[in-house]
Amino acid sequence: MDQWHERKRPVCLERRYEFETYDATRDFLDKLGDHSEATQRFPDISFGRTYVNITIRPDEDAPDASLSEADRALAAEIDALFG
């Protein structure tokens, strides 16, 4: 989790993953898509040929929303997909 950046405004966790090739990027995105469908947790994703940016936001959209242990667990699960 040390490569995740926690922001206060807006509240979120962010991380960038970098890859050697487009195929490796695509494989990671496929794994992430399968994981998201299985867990029904859908982080924000942006990507290019050899990188993927992921943002995890709290489920609530309230002004006082905060990150939960489930959000941090999701980040760890995504790290495992990368590993």
Results as ranks from 00 to 15, higher is better:
residue 12 C to W: 00
residue 43 P to C: 10
residue 13 L to E: 03
residue 6 E to L: 10
residue 46 S to A: 14
residue 9 R to T: 12
residue 21 T to R: 13
residue 22 Y to R: 12
residue 49 R to M: 12
residue 31 K to C: 05
residue 34 D to P: 01
residue 38 A to S: 14
residue 40 Q to G: 11
residue 53 N to M: 12
residue 48 G to P: 04
residue 23 D to P: 05
residue 24 A to R: 12
residue 48 G to W: 02
residue 13 L to Y: 11
residue 27 D to C: 01
residue 48 G to I: 09
residue 55 T to L: 10
residue 10 P to Q: 08
residue 18 E to C: 04
residue 34 D to R: 12
residue 38 A to E: 13
residue 12 C to G: 08
residue 58 P to C: 04
residue 8 K to D: 13
residue 43 P to D: 04
residue 27 D to N: 10
residue 28 F to A: 06
residue 8 K to C: 08
residue 20 E to D: 13
residue 38 A to C: 02
residue 37 E to Q: 13
residue 31 K to I: 04
residue 6 E to C: 04
residue 54 I to Y: 11
residue 51 Y to T: 02
residue 52 V to R: 03
residue 48 G to R: 06
residue 16 R to W: 02
residue 35 H to D: 01
residue 29 L to V: 05
residue 48 G to Y: 09
residue 57 R to F: 10
residue 11 V to N: 03
residue 25 T to G: 05
residue 27 D to F: 10
residue 34 D to E: 13
residue 49 R to V: 13
residue 49 R to T: 14
residue 33 G to H: 05
residue 17 Y to H: 13
residue 19 F to R: 07
residue 8 K to Q: 13
residue 46 S to V: 08
residue 7 R to F: 14
residue 30 D to F: 04
residue 42 F to V: 01
residue 14 E to K: 11
residue 47 F to D: 14
residue 14 E to M: 08
residue 26 R to L: 14
residue 37 E to V: 05
residue 23 D to E: 14
residue 15 R to V: 09
residue 45 I to N: 00
residue 37 E to H: 00
residue 24 A to W: 01
residue 33 G to R: 00
residue 20 E to C: 01
residue 45 I to Q: 06
residue 6 E to W: 04
residue 7 R to M: 01
residue 56 I to H: 10
residue 8 K to P: 00
residue 35 H to G: 03
residue 49 R to A: 09
residue 24 A to T: 09
residue 6 E to A: 15
residue 29 L to N: 00
residue 58 P to L: 07
residue 8 K to T: 12
residue 52 V to N: 03
residue 36 S to M: 11
residue 49 R to N: 10
residue 49 R to Y: 14
residue 51 Y to W: 15
residue 36 S to W: 00
residue 12 C to L: 13
residue 7 R to Y: 11
residue 9 R to M: 10
residue 38 A to L: 09
residue 30 D to E: 15
residue 11 V to A: 15
residue 19 F to Y: 06
residue 30 D to R: 02
residue 44 D to Y: 05
residue 23 D to K: 05
residue 17 Y to E: 07
residue 43 P to F: 05
residue 6 E to H: 05
residue 27 D to K: 11
residue 45 I to K: 01
residue 33 G to E: 09
residue 28 F to T: 01
residue 32 L to C: 11
residue 36 S to T: 10
residue 49 R to H: 14
residue 55 T to Q: 08
residue 37 E to L: 02
residue 43 P to T: 03
residue 59 D to A: 15
residue 52 V to D: 05
residue 14 E to I: 06
residue 58 P to T: 03
residue 26 R to H: 09
residue 48 G to K: 07
residue 7 R to A: 12
residue 56 I to N: 00
residue 34 D to A: 11
residue 60 E to D: 13
residue 8 K to F: 09
residue 7 R to K: 14
residue 57 R to S: 11
residue 38 A to V: 00
residue 41 R to M: 14
residue 60 E to L: 11
residue 32 L to F: 01
residue 33 G to C: 00
residue 48 G to V: 12
residue 44 D to N: 10
residue 41 R to I: 04
residue 50 T to S: 14
residue 24 A to K: 15
residue 54 I to L: 11
residue 49 R to L: 06
residue 29 L to T: 04
residue 40 Q to A: 11
residue 16 R to H: 04
residue 28 F to C: 05
residue 6 E to V: 13
residue 37 E to Y: 06
residue 20 E to H: 08
residue 23 D to L: 12
residue 46 S to Y: 02
residue 59 D to E: 15
